[in-house]
Write a protein that binds this DNA or RNA. Structure first.
Length: 278
DNA sequence: CTAATTTGACCAGT
DNA sequence: ACTGGTCAAATTAG
Protein backbone atom coordinates (compact mmCIF):
# COMPACT_ATOMS: atom_id res chain seq x y z
CA UNK A 1 0.00 0.00 0.00
CA UNK A 2 1.18 3.38 -0.74
CA UNK A 3 -1.06 5.01 1.79
CA UNK A 4 1.17 5.74 4.68
CA UNK A 5 -1.33 7.62 6.68
CA UNK A 6 -4.99 7.11 6.71
CA UNK A 7 -6.55 9.15 9.39
CA UNK A 8 -10.15 9.11 10.24
CA UNK A 9 -10.79 11.66 12.81
CA UNK A 10 -13.57 13.67 14.16
CA UNK A 11 -15.28 16.20 12.07
CA UNK A 12 -18.13 17.85 13.77
CA UNK A 13 -17.96 21.41 14.67
CA UNK A 14 -18.78 23.29 17.75
CA UNK A 15 -19.54 26.85 18.42
CA UNK A 16 -16.73 28.09 20.41
CA UNK A 17 -15.27 26.74 23.52
CA UNK A 18 -12.41 28.03 25.40
CA UNK A 19 -10.75 26.99 28.52
CA UNK A 20 -12.56 28.81 31.22
CA UNK A 21 -11.81 26.39 33.92
CA UNK A 22 -9.05 26.61 36.36
CA UNK A 23 -7.39 29.15 34.26
CA UNK A 24 -4.04 29.55 35.71
CA UNK A 25 -5.45 29.00 39.10
CA UNK A 26 -6.07 25.80 40.82
CA UNK A 27 -9.17 26.98 42.46
CA UNK A 28 -11.61 24.81 40.73
CA UNK A 29 -11.94 22.62 37.82
CA UNK A 30 -14.48 20.67 36.00
CA UNK A 31 -14.30 17.73 33.82
CA UNK A 32 -17.14 18.56 31.60
CA UNK A 33 -17.02 21.47 29.32
CA UNK A 34 -18.93 24.27 30.93
CA UNK A 35 -20.75 25.25 27.87
CA UNK A 36 -20.15 22.50 25.48
CA UNK A 37 -22.86 20.87 23.53
CA UNK A 38 -22.74 17.15 23.45
CA UNK A 39 -24.46 14.60 21.43
CA UNK A 40 -23.26 15.80 18.14
CA UNK A 41 -22.90 13.73 15.11
CA UNK A 42 -20.14 11.23 15.04
CA UNK A 43 -17.04 11.72 13.08
CA UNK A 44 -17.37 10.98 9.45
CA UNK A 45 -15.91 13.35 7.08
CA UNK A 46 -12.73 15.14 6.52
CA UNK A 47 -9.99 13.14 7.99
CA UNK A 48 -7.79 15.40 9.87
CA UNK A 49 -9.26 18.76 10.35
CA UNK A 50 -11.51 20.61 8.07
CA UNK A 51 -14.76 20.98 9.76
CA UNK A 52 -13.22 20.44 13.08
CA UNK A 53 -10.69 23.13 13.20
CA UNK A 54 -8.61 23.12 16.28
CA UNK A 55 -10.23 26.27 17.40
CA UNK A 56 -13.66 24.90 17.06
CA UNK A 57 -13.02 21.85 19.00
CA UNK A 58 -14.64 21.76 22.36
CA UNK A 59 -12.01 21.84 24.96
CA UNK A 60 -11.72 22.77 28.54
CA UNK A 61 -8.86 22.96 30.88
CA UNK A 62 -8.50 21.34 34.18
CA UNK A 63 -5.76 21.83 36.66
CA UNK A 64 -5.04 18.92 38.83
CA UNK A 65 -2.39 17.05 40.66
CA UNK A 66 -3.63 13.80 39.39
CA UNK A 67 -3.95 14.18 35.68
CA UNK A 68 -3.97 10.49 35.20
CA UNK A 69 -6.86 9.93 37.49
CA UNK A 70 -9.91 11.42 36.00
CA UNK A 71 -12.12 8.43 35.92
CA UNK A 72 -11.57 7.37 32.40
CA UNK A 73 -9.27 5.08 30.65
CA UNK A 74 -6.85 6.80 28.42
CA UNK A 75 -4.37 5.59 25.98
CA UNK A 76 -1.36 7.58 25.25
CA UNK A 77 -0.96 8.17 21.61
CA UNK A 78 1.79 10.66 21.47
CA UNK A 79 3.90 13.20 23.12
CA UNK A 80 5.39 16.39 21.99
CA UNK A 81 7.65 18.90 23.41
CA UNK A 82 5.71 22.07 23.45
CA UNK A 83 7.75 25.06 22.80
CA UNK A 84 6.30 27.07 25.58
CA UNK A 85 6.43 24.31 28.05
CA UNK A 86 8.91 25.06 30.71
CA UNK A 87 8.34 21.99 32.66
CA UNK A 88 9.05 18.72 31.04
CA UNK A 89 6.85 16.67 33.23
CA UNK A 90 7.07 14.96 36.54
CA UNK A 91 9.28 16.56 39.05
CA UNK A 92 11.74 17.58 36.51
CA UNK A 93 12.14 14.07 35.46
CA UNK A 94 12.15 13.20 31.89
CA UNK A 95 10.69 10.36 30.07
CA UNK A 96 13.43 8.17 28.82
CA UNK A 97 15.64 11.14 28.94
CA UNK A 98 13.31 13.02 26.75
CA UNK A 99 12.02 16.40 27.58
CA UNK A 100 8.46 16.68 26.70
CA UNK A 101 5.91 19.27 27.44
CA UNK A 102 2.78 17.59 26.35
CA UNK A 103 1.43 14.13 26.56
CA UNK A 104 -1.43 13.20 24.35
CA UNK A 105 -4.04 10.75 25.43
CA UNK A 106 -7.15 9.53 23.82
CA UNK A 107 -10.01 7.51 25.15
CA UNK A 108 -9.30 3.84 25.21
CA UNK A 109 -12.68 3.22 23.70
CA UNK A 110 -12.07 5.37 20.77
CA UNK A 111 -11.79 2.48 18.44
CA UNK A 112 -14.70 0.62 19.89
CA UNK A 113 -17.11 3.40 20.61
CA UNK A 114 -15.72 6.06 18.45
CA UNK A 115 -15.15 8.07 21.53
CA UNK A 116 -12.95 10.89 20.49
CA UNK A 117 -12.34 12.25 23.87
CA UNK A 118 -8.75 13.17 24.28
CA UNK A 119 -6.63 15.09 26.63
CA UNK A 120 -3.36 16.82 26.68
CA UNK A 121 -1.26 16.88 29.79
CA UNK A 122 1.02 19.70 30.50
CA UNK A 123 2.90 20.33 33.65
CA UNK A 124 2.02 23.66 35.04
CA UNK A 125 4.63 24.18 37.61
CA UNK A 126 7.64 22.54 39.04
CA UNK A 127 6.34 22.23 42.48
CA UNK A 128 7.01 19.20 44.51
CA UNK A 129 3.64 17.82 43.79
CA UNK A 130 3.65 18.98 40.23
CA UNK A 131 0.52 20.63 39.10
CA UNK A 132 -0.75 19.61 35.74
CA UNK A 133 -2.90 21.33 33.30
CA UNK A 134 -5.07 18.91 31.47
CA UNK A 135 -6.72 20.07 28.34
CA UNK A 136 -9.64 17.88 27.50
CA UNK A 137 -10.98 17.80 24.04
CA UNK A 138 -14.36 16.39 23.19
CA UNK A 139 -16.61 14.68 25.57
CA UNK A 140 -16.69 11.00 26.16
CA UNK A 141 -19.17 9.38 23.87
CA UNK A 142 -18.08 5.93 24.74
CA UNK A 143 -20.71 5.72 27.38
CA UNK A 144 -18.22 4.48 29.84
CA UNK A 145 -19.02 6.04 33.17
CA UNK A 146 -16.19 7.47 35.10
CA UNK A 147 -14.75 5.07 37.49
CA UNK A 148 -15.57 5.86 41.07
CA UNK A 149 -12.77 6.88 43.17
CA UNK A 150 -12.36 8.13 46.66
CA UNK A 151 -11.75 11.74 47.32
CA UNK A 152 -8.21 12.65 47.64
CA UNK A 153 -7.03 14.95 50.29
CA UNK A 154 -3.51 16.03 49.86
CA UNK A 155 -1.92 17.65 52.77
CA UNK A 156 1.29 19.54 52.46
CA UNK A 157 4.23 18.19 54.33
CA UNK A 158 4.33 19.16 57.94
CA UNK A 159 6.69 21.79 59.14
CA UNK A 160 9.27 19.18 59.68
CA UNK A 161 8.03 16.51 57.43
CA UNK A 162 9.17 16.14 53.91
CA UNK A 163 6.62 13.84 52.55
CA UNK A 164 3.25 14.54 51.19
CA UNK A 165 0.36 12.83 52.76
CA UNK A 166 -2.39 11.86 50.50
CA UNK A 167 -5.56 10.82 52.09
CA UNK A 168 -8.14 8.93 50.18
CA UNK A 169 -11.51 9.35 51.66
CA UNK A 170 -14.26 7.24 50.39
CA UNK A 171 -17.42 9.24 50.12
CA UNK A 172 -19.68 6.29 50.09
CA UNK A 173 -17.65 4.17 52.36
CA UNK A 174 -16.42 1.93 49.67
CA UNK A 175 -13.64 1.04 51.90
CA UNK A 176 -11.29 3.08 49.92
CA UNK A 177 -9.04 5.01 52.10
CA UNK A 178 -5.38 4.92 52.32
CA UNK A 179 -2.55 7.08 53.28
CA UNK A 180 0.34 7.41 51.03
CA UNK A 181 3.50 9.04 52.08
CA UNK A 182 5.04 10.53 49.12
CA UNK A 183 8.63 11.30 49.50
CA UNK A 184 10.23 14.11 47.73
CA UNK A 185 9.67 13.54 44.10
CA UNK A 186 9.46 9.89 44.56
CA UNK A 187 6.26 8.60 43.26
CA UNK A 188 5.32 5.07 43.48
CA UNK A 189 5.57 3.59 40.12
CA UNK A 190 3.50 0.64 39.35
CA UNK A 191 5.38 -0.63 36.44
CA UNK A 192 8.70 0.11 35.05
CA UNK A 193 6.89 1.23 32.01
CA UNK A 194 4.74 3.93 33.28
CA UNK A 195 6.86 6.89 34.09
CA UNK A 196 3.93 8.62 35.61
CA UNK A 197 2.93 8.87 39.11
CA UNK A 198 1.01 5.97 40.27
CA UNK A 199 -0.47 5.62 43.64
CA UNK A 200 -1.75 2.42 44.96
CA UNK A 201 -4.73 2.44 47.17
CA UNK A 202 -6.51 -0.31 48.87
CA UNK A 203 -9.78 0.92 47.62
CA UNK A 204 -12.07 -1.53 46.07
CA UNK A 205 -13.37 -0.45 42.80
CA UNK A 206 -17.07 -0.68 42.48
CA UNK A 207 -18.54 -2.55 39.68
CA UNK A 208 -19.86 0.40 37.88
CA UNK A 209 -22.88 -0.69 36.00
CA UNK A 210 -23.23 0.64 32.58
CA UNK A 211 -26.35 2.42 33.57
CA UNK A 212 -24.77 5.68 32.85
CA UNK A 213 -25.72 6.50 29.32
CA UNK A 214 -23.02 8.96 29.04
CA UNK A 215 -20.49 10.35 31.26
CA UNK A 216 -21.66 13.19 33.40
CA UNK A 217 -19.77 15.76 35.20
CA UNK A 218 -20.30 18.74 37.31
CA UNK A 219 -18.31 21.46 38.80
CA UNK A 220 -19.36 21.35 42.35
CA UNK A 221 -22.28 20.15 44.31
CA UNK A 222 -23.14 23.70 45.12
CA UNK A 223 -22.86 25.28 41.78
CA UNK A 224 -25.35 23.73 39.51
CA UNK A 225 -23.59 24.10 36.29
CA UNK A 226 -25.84 23.58 33.40
CA UNK A 227 -24.62 20.82 31.29
CA UNK A 228 -26.91 20.50 28.35
CA UNK A 229 -26.36 16.88 28.31
CA UNK A 230 -28.96 14.99 30.18
CA UNK A 231 -29.88 14.00 33.63
CA UNK A 232 -29.32 16.07 36.68
CA UNK A 233 -25.94 17.14 37.80
CA UNK A 234 -24.25 14.46 39.74
CA UNK A 235 -26.65 13.31 42.39
CA UNK A 236 -25.66 13.02 46.00
CA UNK A 237 -22.85 10.75 47.01
CA UNK A 238 -23.08 7.11 46.40
CA UNK A 239 -25.68 6.68 49.01
CA UNK A 240 -27.36 3.81 47.43
CA UNK A 241 -25.78 2.42 44.40
CA UNK A 242 -22.70 4.42 44.19
CA UNK A 243 -23.05 5.01 40.56
CA UNK A 244 -21.43 8.27 40.67
CA UNK A 245 -19.73 10.60 42.95
CA UNK A 246 -20.93 14.04 43.69
CA UNK A 247 -17.85 15.87 42.83
CA UNK A 248 -16.36 13.68 40.33
CA UNK A 249 -14.15 16.28 38.99
CA UNK A 250 -14.47 18.95 41.41
CA UNK A 251 -11.28 19.88 42.90
CA UNK A 252 -10.60 22.47 45.40
CA UNK A 253 -7.25 23.75 46.05
CA UNK A 254 -6.63 25.32 49.35
CA UNK A 255 -3.28 26.76 49.81
CA UNK A 256 -4.37 27.61 53.22
CA UNK A 257 -4.25 24.20 54.56
CA UNK A 258 -4.61 21.41 52.18
CA UNK A 259 -5.52 20.34 48.78
CA UNK A 260 -8.83 18.85 48.18
CA UNK A 261 -9.60 17.37 44.93
CA UNK A 262 -12.24 14.96 44.06
CA UNK A 263 -10.34 13.82 41.15
CA UNK A 264 -10.82 10.19 41.24
CA UNK A 265 -9.81 7.57 38.91
CA UNK A 266 -8.84 4.06 39.30
CA UNK A 267 -5.92 2.91 37.40
CA UNK A 268 -3.33 4.64 35.41
CA UNK A 269 -3.85 4.84 31.76
CA UNK A 270 -1.64 1.90 31.82
CA UNK A 271 -4.19 -0.60 30.92
CA UNK A 272 -7.62 -1.13 29.63
CA UNK A 273 -8.62 -3.26 32.47
CA UNK A 274 -11.48 -1.75 34.31
CA UNK A 275 -12.36 -2.35 37.86
CA UNK A 276 -13.35 -5.83 37.09
CA UNK A 277 -10.06 -6.88 38.39
CA UNK A 278 -10.73 -5.63 41.85
C1' DC B 1 0.62 -13.68 22.02
C1' DT B 2 -1.75 -9.56 22.86
C1' DA B 3 -1.92 -5.07 24.01
C1' DA B 4 -0.03 -0.79 25.36
C1' DT B 5 3.79 2.49 24.96
C1' DT B 6 7.39 4.77 22.55
C1' DT B 7 9.12 7.63 19.00
C1' DG B 8 9.63 9.87 14.68
C1' DA B 9 7.30 11.59 10.81
C1' DC B 10 3.55 13.85 8.68
C1' DC B 11 -0.21 17.02 8.34
C1' DA B 12 -3.05 20.77 9.55
C1' DG B 13 -3.71 25.09 11.68
C1' DT B 14 -2.07 29.50 12.99
C1' DA C 1 7.40 28.83 8.48
C1' DC C 2 6.59 27.18 12.94
C1' DT C 3 4.13 24.67 16.34
C1' DG C 4 0.90 21.62 17.73
C1' DG C 5 -1.59 17.42 17.15
C1' DT C 6 -2.14 12.76 15.35
C1' DC C 7 -0.78 8.50 13.23
C1' DA C 8 1.44 4.49 12.53
C1' DA C 9 5.35 1.15 12.93
C1' DA C 10 8.37 -0.78 16.17
C1' DT C 11 9.37 -2.12 20.72
C1' DT C 12 8.51 -3.74 25.26
C1' DA C 13 5.90 -5.43 28.92
C1' DG C 14 2.50 -8.38 30.92
Amino acid sequence: MASPRMKTEQSFEFGELSAQDAMGSASESSYGPPGAVFGVSPPESSPRGRNNRRRDRPSWVKVTYTPYFDGHLWRKYGQKKIKDAEYPRDNGQTLNGLDLGGLYFRCSYRGDRQCMASKLLQQKNGDDPPLYEVTYTYEHTCGAPPIPFPDIVAEPPAASAEGLVLRFDSPGGHGGDAQIMQQQGQYQQSTSRSPFMMLSFGSSCQTHDQQQPAFQSDLEPGSSSSIPNEGPPAPPPANGDGDMFPTWDSFTYDFDSHVHFGDHTRLPYNSNYGCDDF
